[in-house]
Nucleic acid binder design. Structure first.
Lengths: 227, 227
DNA sequence: AGCCTATAACTTGTATACAAAAATCGTAAA
DNA sequence: TTTACGATTTTTGTATACAAGTTATAGGCT
């Protein structure tokens, strides 16, 4: 993919993840071609990529639709992420220096300041907290020597990112909850309390499910019906 | 992708995974078009898909090459799979009935009979043992209610499958080793010996690394040079 | 009104010509 | 011999016309 086309892919990807383009929305090759002033061929490449990401479903001769959220799949990803994160955090607890702990606390302080800031609109806040959240986890994975593992997890599951936007970042209360869990995790790491760490890692990775019912209520058509 | 094109994708995918098409091999759109009697457009879709799988690298106006094996990436995948498998097997040990254990032993017996059969050529044996290996793990994940998790892991990392072919199935001795680990794992599950289970899960997921040095020696050009 | 059918419109799949960039090759000069 | 340069070839990217299948629509029939 040429850089210009890559950029179009990024634009669509981010809009789908941030739910600006809602699940179920139809994407038309020709309409996109006109709006980006390109022929259908490179646009098709972009749509194929989104399909590979699990964010788009292309039906032959019928149309392409932004995929709905599959809660079974989300559960499977959460299970994977929680398993890996616990192992990585155990490894992390064995190598963290007091200086590292201080640095992690500074990253957390940034999250707190974001929560206390007023006036930011929802989207701006979501993106900022998303970045701060990633920074915290990246730091800990890197310290454990498992930065490549987190990168692989993040790169591999683009539609999990959409789920995180769905519950964690759109609602400030959920973000506060994430922040509290982060604080607890850091305390667990400091005390090397593996039992508490396990509990908090699970709470962290499954936290998105707590507020999901209200989202399902507000937007039932965003979700895949389970058989 | 239309079923016919999907089939072409499967053919190439399997050949790459089975290392019949070696890492570094150049794939030419026009040559493939001619050999499959199709135009370049659908062939390009197939190559794009292989690129998304991490099995092909497409360089603009330069050419497409089957990707070399990235041992760092393989390590990250192994870490993920080992973490998840341990959790899943712990969950499994809590629900396995004596009847389930018997069934698992029957699946293992199939693996043993494959090992004792003579006369099969390497490729045939590799495919058969690969299937038997999958059957064993699928059975246990399913019993733990985590079949979707294993499916996601397998679907998400196609180039890990190639690595398994590289070390686990091409060499009969490695397959014997896998079989021994499977037996131990099943014993651990039966006795609910979590410490031994952890050890054997790790041994299972990292077993591919044991014979890798000789493969690197024989085919140094198959591997990505680490910086 | 309700239903069936045929036609038209729409949407993605495929073929193909051309564009753009990179690699290759040959030639000539140092 | 080596090197530099330019034309040719090679290869993927893009535009576009057409094919094939699906859906929507309109009209007529019961």
């Amino acid at each position: 993919m040429t850089p210009e086309v890559q950029k179009i892919y990024q634009i669509l990807l981010e809009k789908i993840i941030a739910l600006e383009i809602e699940p179920g929305t139809r994407l038309r090759e020709e309409a996109l071609s006109r709006s980006f002033s390109l022929s259908r061929t490179p646009i098709r490449d972009v749509l194929k990529q989104l399909e590979a990401d699990g964010l788009l479903e292309i039906f032959s001769q019928r149309g392409s639709y932004v995929s709905k959220i599959d809660l079974d799949g989300i559960n499977a990803i959460m299970y994977i992420r929680a398993s890996v994160e616990f192992d990585a955090m155990v490894a992390c607890s064995n190598v963290l220096t007091p200086g590292d702990i201080e640095e992690a606390k500074r990253i957390l302080a940034l999250q707190e300041s974001l929560l206390q800031e007023e006036g930011k609109d929802k989207k701006e806040f979501a993106n900022a907290f998303f970045a701060a959240d990633n920074a915290f986890h990246s730091f800990l994975y890197d310290k454990a020597g498992k930065g490549a593992v987190l990168a692989l997890l993040n790169r591999t599951y683009p539609y999990y990112q959409r789920f995180r936007f769905l519950t964690g970042y759109r609602d400030k209360k959920e973000s506060e909850n994430l922040y509290e869990i982060h604080k607890r995790m850091l305390g667990d790491l400091e005390r090397k309390d593996l039992a508490a760490l396990k509990e908090d890692v699970l709470a962290h990775n499954y936290s998105g499910l707590s507020g999901i019912q209200s989202v399902i209520h507000d937007h039932p058509d965003w979700f895949l019906k389970q058989e």
